[in-house]
């Protein structure tokens, strides 16, 4: 049975059908938002489109049962990183309206590379994982499990990350300091 066939068979199951539809909607929204983000001629709009993508990705995490990652995505990305980016836009005195020269002249190079990249990746993914299905009985990987894991076997990377954040903080201050 081809994978499309499996998909068709699965569509009879209501729960799967709902989830899949939900996913497709999210995927469509995020891809459209992402496309708009890289093509829009308004920096502030680009930031808002990125916001949509990030929210959509958080929703994808929820579908995958990664609740804590979804919550962190919203808190850190939408709460902090987006604000940072908007500050960046503001401090570099971007126009609030449209701008004309946000892109390079030779957009086709970027387009070519990303299309080829997409083709290569799509082909290899199709080859490698066309039959791979997420387990039906998968349990959501809750916050407790994440906590056990981070403060268990991943304690050293965790500490390293915290040192990295500190270093980045200091580095950012040093680099951007007016002196």
């Amino acid at each position: 049975m081809t994978s499309l066939g499996i998909l068709a068979a699965e569509m009879t199951n209501t729960e799967v059908w709902v989830t899949n539809s939900f996913f497709l909607a999210i995927a469509a929204v995020s891809i459209l938002a992402a496309l708009k983000m890289v093509t829009t001629d308004n920096v502030v709009h680009a930031a808002l489109y990125l916001l949509i993508v990030l929210a959509a990705v958080a929703a994808v995490y929820v579908i995958l049962g990664a609740e804590f990652a979804a919550a962190t995505q919203i808190l850190v990305y939408i709460g902090a990183i987006m604000v940072l980016l908007l500050f960046g836009v503001m401090l570099t005195r971007a126009q609030i309206g449209s701008e004309t020269d946000l892109d390079h002249d030779q957009k086709w190079i970027g387009a070519l590379i990303s299309v080829v990249l997409a083709a290569v990746m799509g082909y290899s993914l199709w080859e490698a994982f066309s039959d791979a299905k997420l387990p039906d009985n998968r349990v959501p990987q809750g916050t407790e499990a994440v906590a056990d894991s981070i403060f268990g076997i991943y304690i050293v990377p965790f500490e390293a990350i915290s040192v990295l954040l500190l270093a980045a903080l200091i580095g950012a201050v040093v680099v951007a300091r007016r002196d």
Binding site: H104, I109, G110, I113, S114, V116, L117, V120, M121, Y123, S124, E127
Partner: peptide
């Protein structure tokens, strides 16, 4: 920088294709 980035991604793409 943009050109370097293009070369890097382009080269990575080519390499990926070669591997495949």
């Amino acid at each position: 920088v943009r050109q370097y980035a293009s070369l890097m991604f382009g080269a990575a793409t080519v390499l990926a294709a070669v591997f495949i």
